[in-house]
Design a protein around this nucleic acid. Sequence first.
DNA 1: GCCCATAACTTAATCGATTAAGTTAAAATT
DNA 2: AATTTTAACTTAATCGATTAAGTTATGGGC
Lengths: 333, 333
Amino acid sequence: MSLSLKSIAKALNVSRTTVSWVLAGKGDEKKISLATQERVLEYAKKANYQPNLLAKSLISGESKTIGLVVPSIGDEFYAQIARVIELKAESCGFTLTFCSSEADSEREAKMIQMLKSKMVDGLIIAPTKHSKREIESLINESFPFVLIDRFFPELDTNYVLVDNEGGCYQLTKHLLALGRKKVAFVTTDTNLVVMGLRYNGYKKALSDTKNRLNSNLYIEVKRSDYEKELIKAFDRLFHEVPDVDGFCFATHYLALEGLRYFYAHHINITKRISLACFHGSPSFSILAPNMSLAIQPIEGIGEEAVNVLIQNIEKKKTENRQIVLPVKMCFHS
Amino acid sequence: MSLSLKSIAKALNVSRTTVSWVLAGKGDEKKISLATQERVLEYAKKANYQPNLLAKSLISGESKTIGLVVPSIGDEFYAQIARVIELKAESCGFTLTFCSSEADSEREAKMIQMLKSKMVDGLIIAPTKHSKREIESLINESFPFVLIDRFFPELDTNYVLVDNEGGCYQLTKHLLALGRKKVAFVTTDTNLVVMGLRYNGYKKALSDTKNRLNSNLYIEVKRSDYEKELIKAFDRLFHEVPDVDGFCFATHYLALEGLRYFYAHHINITKRISLACFHGSPSFSILAPNMSLAIQPIEGIGEEAVNVLIQNIEKKKTENRQIVLPVKMCFHS
DNA sequence: GCCCATAACTTAATCGATTAAGTTAAAATT
DNA sequence: AATTTTAACTTAATCGATTAAGTTATGGGC
């Protein structure tokens, strides 16, 4: 269908090698006459020749493609990460193929397998909670990869994370410093290590300020159907602890549902309670200008992930790198 | 590095052909002895053989990969579209490679070229305004592709759109039916055909109800730096037409900035004005529960795009299909 | 005992590129 | 004039798979 080196060679009555050399810019080096070089270049341009990169990859053993595996590309956070990764990867000559695991580790395993079969040069993965197995086998094959957003403390891998614990620690401390006494922590998916870290930050802030941990102030909702779950949990919370006066949300989507609840119940989110959230969303500055935020450095995560991965791809060796980026604190009263 | 057909063949002392047939499930058909079949299958399983799909694609001429080109994968709307497309494509045996054009037609042309070089079987493109050239050349090469979200009326291509004009027509009519007299239309990027269609819907609703078009009520902001642009435009609007009582936003991100303005200026968005927006965003139901919406059928767009594209890929022929999906109206008072 | 069918493979070409290792004819050197 | 160099190519192997077209050896039929 599309024209190949071979067909150019045939048309010009020269060998494939000659054409290959000229188009690769090695014409002079390989002592191809100027006349021939011009003939080849002109023909290639006129016919709009584009090399088949699959063939090239087959030989070179590198596809210049990175596989990105995230729970869902439809998620605002991962979509923005994907954008940064794409731009950074492109500047290094790589394109991106992505797969959404839909938070299903079997699906994830299949996608990783597929990407490897398509000969991606490396993977950037935001793993699901049960994908330790798959990650271990990547380690065994010493296939280049970097984890982002989530990790496995017991595995020695590359990863790029943010300071989950520190972020929630600072947010909680800020709420307490504002004079709040009963600060609730709202979280989900607690078998994810990073969620545990966020909770640790909350707990540490409490104990550092001699506040007692109150289990009634701990709200955990299941990931699926979290909207309704949260309403139920909040109804109970406001019944059990009517004078709750602060909220630290572990994720932006929980915070959005929390805000929906506060608005629906006419709860004064300036006077009666203070708010904080790990990461944010554009609408928060309108909905709750006073909410304090620990913003994840999306650019940094993406760029570091690509950096680490490409280093790993290029010099097969290299030790694993564990990067923890600081969050950007935005305090409000 | 990773083991190949060849190495399996060598290890078992059979020919590559035999191994290939057995692994392709053609063992019986090709009369390979059961003993050999078992030996091959067992070895392949133990060694975790995975075929090199690049090599397979080189032969078959199909990569089972679709290229997705959108202005930005970081954009909520395109991210969600991408998710749907990925799921649908996967169910048809395709994976997705994506590129963000960053609304730059030169960049877009480069990305399309790259994707074609990587031998994607087809493209799904949300084109930028100046990419007509590139699209035309795809037509000339009869390369399979589908446009989404945007299109070129003068080109005969596949496309999947939503009813832009009808959506804005109904939204505007609704605002007028609520008794609003001075409804503003807020838009951007007017050289995009679909933005023109949305404006047409607005104008048609006005003329159908014998309302006069008032150029003071037409707000157009540049795409870049639209946040500040919108503030300036609104300042002017409220000065020139203090009794403006309705707003129809052409996009969700304009509406969000509009809401930011209303909140900042304590403008009563229930009594003093009525709101409408083409498409929506999760926070709108909290920020402006009364805002009427014309929701784009994201699932439908993605699924139809994949359907049309795959049909196009599989039977090289086929006429172009032009699909316009209805929007889902959510009226509020 | 001869011929043919069939089981059970193997050889070699192919996809589209790259590249090490030739080849040939003309020019330069001795 | 004989030998070496060099310019300007070409041949053929290779990447990892697929597949059309052979090739054996064995068994059955007559």
